[in-house]
Design a protein around this nucleic acid. Structure first.
Lengths: 333, 333
DNA sequence: CTGAAAGCGCTTACAG
DNA sequence: CTGAAAGCGCTTACAG
């Protein structure tokens, strides 16, 4: 049998109202009464039912998080950042994925309206923007963890993609590379266009504009990066560096270079983006532009919680710095 | 303003009881009445409040999941398997971690008693066994995803560690290795002892018992594997293979071998355990014993859901097969 | 087939 | 400082 507030009230000889007051630390209770009630709570091991509290208060002290996939190499860091922050605020985290088409979108939507959570964090799955916009308009607080879109309607946290692209460029220029191949992610993503722009501008400003034939769209996968580079080498294209828009594609590029007998970094220097845990374990270890994934999760969670608890909310946009992490794929040790 | 069951009842000209009946598909409703109610529900976009339903029914249609960390390389697969299964059953998933000491254990425990969820899936964090046992005794359904412990009290799913160890051994024997170094994980973990036993037995039965000096306890990290192998090589120990108890340690071993100028697999063959996503991307690609992490998550979730929905529950123990995945760290291509 | 009423376990005006 | 009562939005005997 569950112990309820009524049991506590009876055992302490007070009303449920009073128990509720000491539970919620409203000051209006006599010190000795409060002490007695607390003693009973401890003795009985009473814990309020979160469902009942939520119903009475009209909120659940739970946030939702929607992600496209949990198996991407950097997703664990983001979710860890979120869960740490959310738990520290004594909220719960309800996790959703949306990887099985319209069906799961619909299921997710109905969960939302069931008010299982008070606010939503999202790493945007494709084809969910319309739904998210609708939810947001209906009053659900939403914060985007933005690795790709550009949605001024929502508060979001993002990494400094433009600067990240520029820092990759500056590093390659510093180590004497002049003809880089750029292996972009899908160009429909805002982050991809930013990484490209930052990189392109830095090269242009140094007097070495990028060659259009050396800007190739890829798909953020290892296989995609590998095939693209293999194909370009077969075509006889000449380049002395690769800037891949994520680490997975960079690893594919390294594999293709190795397969052709080219040395990294002597013949071709390789730079990735993300700094996934794997990056320092490749052979050679991968130079990359670090996105602070865990911090992005933490900041997004804090932005959302501030909106839910009407603490003074931080601004609607947080851009976290990226930084070049120099390893041996660009510089001989 | 939230739309409630009372709004629907009023608009449809029936009682809340009747609305509730069509919502829950109890057959006792007149067909045309039911149709009318459904039409109103759709028109109003009514969705029942999960909190209220949970309170009235005494259960939340939510399961909890407790993990030590979300950033371990195989954890994403496990959680993905869980979340897919749980969502398909129209349950929610509440995620908890327990990586900040006694404080977070306590916070977690009180969430449990708040009945925010009906059952619990756990990848056991260290020092939580006592708490889990207490929860289980108090009637909370718990299923362990067992990568290390051995807790007959709980239903659990595990990989076939003994067979996995044996298959690693058989493969190394088949490629002519006779003096393997075994780089174990922490020996307090049951899975580690099983992997070792399976491996040892297979070698012994083939007439090549393991040499005690070549069984070395390590810690499941890349750095740990690297340092251990470096140290053994410095001591001049002679071995022609490494069986590491996880892929991370195997990668460390490969790095140490490479640093000493030894070739993999020509001089030393290397086998890991897990088959994390990284394993196929190492140089050379890593031969390993695959644990079906996603399936383990799925099976554990199904076991728990069966207990919650009194479907005929599967047995309390599920041992999922492991399989050797042969790559170039043991066999030249 | 249908509805009035009690109950799930809390919180919160309101009155004293 | 304290309590009785209504209310949060549902479900479920019970009665008809």
């Amino acid at each position: 049998m569950r112990i309820t507030i009524a049991d506590v009230a009876r055992a302490a000889g007070v009303s449920k109202t009073t128990v509720s007051r000491v539970l919620n630390a409203r000051g209006e209770v006599d010190r000795s009464t409060a002490a007695r009630v607390r003693e009973v709570i401890d003795r009985l091991g009473y814990v309020p039912s979160s469902g009942a509290v939520g119903l009475a208060r009209g909120q659940s002290r739970t946030v939702g998080m929607l992600v496209p996939s949990l198996t991407w190499p950097w997703m664990g860091e983001v979710v860890q950042g979120v869960v740490d922050t959310v738990e520290a605020a004594e909220f719960g985290l309800l996790l959703f994925t949306c990887n099985r088409g319209a069906d799961s979108v619909e299921r997710f939507t109905s969960q939302v309206f069931a008010r299982a959570f008070d606010g939503l964090l999202v790493v945007e799955p494709e084809n969910t923007l319309a739904m998210l916009t609708a939810l947001h308009r209906r009053g659900l607080p939403v914060v985007l963890i933005d690795d790709r879109g550009r949605h001024p309607e929502f508060p979001y946290v993002t990494a400094a993609n433009l600067q990240g692209g520029a820092s990759a460029a500056r590093h390659l220029l510093a180590v004497g590379r002049r003809r880089p191949l750029v292996l972009t992610g899908p160009l429909r993503f805002g982050c991809v266009r930013d990484r490209l722009d930052g990189f392109r501008t830095a090269f242009a400003e140094s007097g070495h504009p990028l060659e259009p034939a050396l800007i190739v769209e890829s798909d953020f996968t290892e296989a995609g990066g590998r095939e693209a580079v293999r194909h370009l080498l077969e075509q006889g294209l000449d380049f002395d560096a690769v800037f891949a828009h994520n680490d997975l594609a960079a690893m594919g590029a390294m594999a293709a270079l190795r397969a052709t007998g080219l040395r990294v970094p002597e013949d071709v220097a390789v730079v990735g983006f993300d700094d996934i845990p794997m990056a320092r374990l490749t052979q050679p270890p991968l130079t990359t532009v670090r996105q602070p994934m865990r911090e992005m999760g933490e900041v997004a969670a804090r932005m959302l919680l501030a909106r839910l608890t009407d603490t003074e909310a931080p601004g609607p946009v947080a851009e976290l710095p990226t930084s070049a992490v120099i390893r041996q794929s660009t510089v001989n040790s």
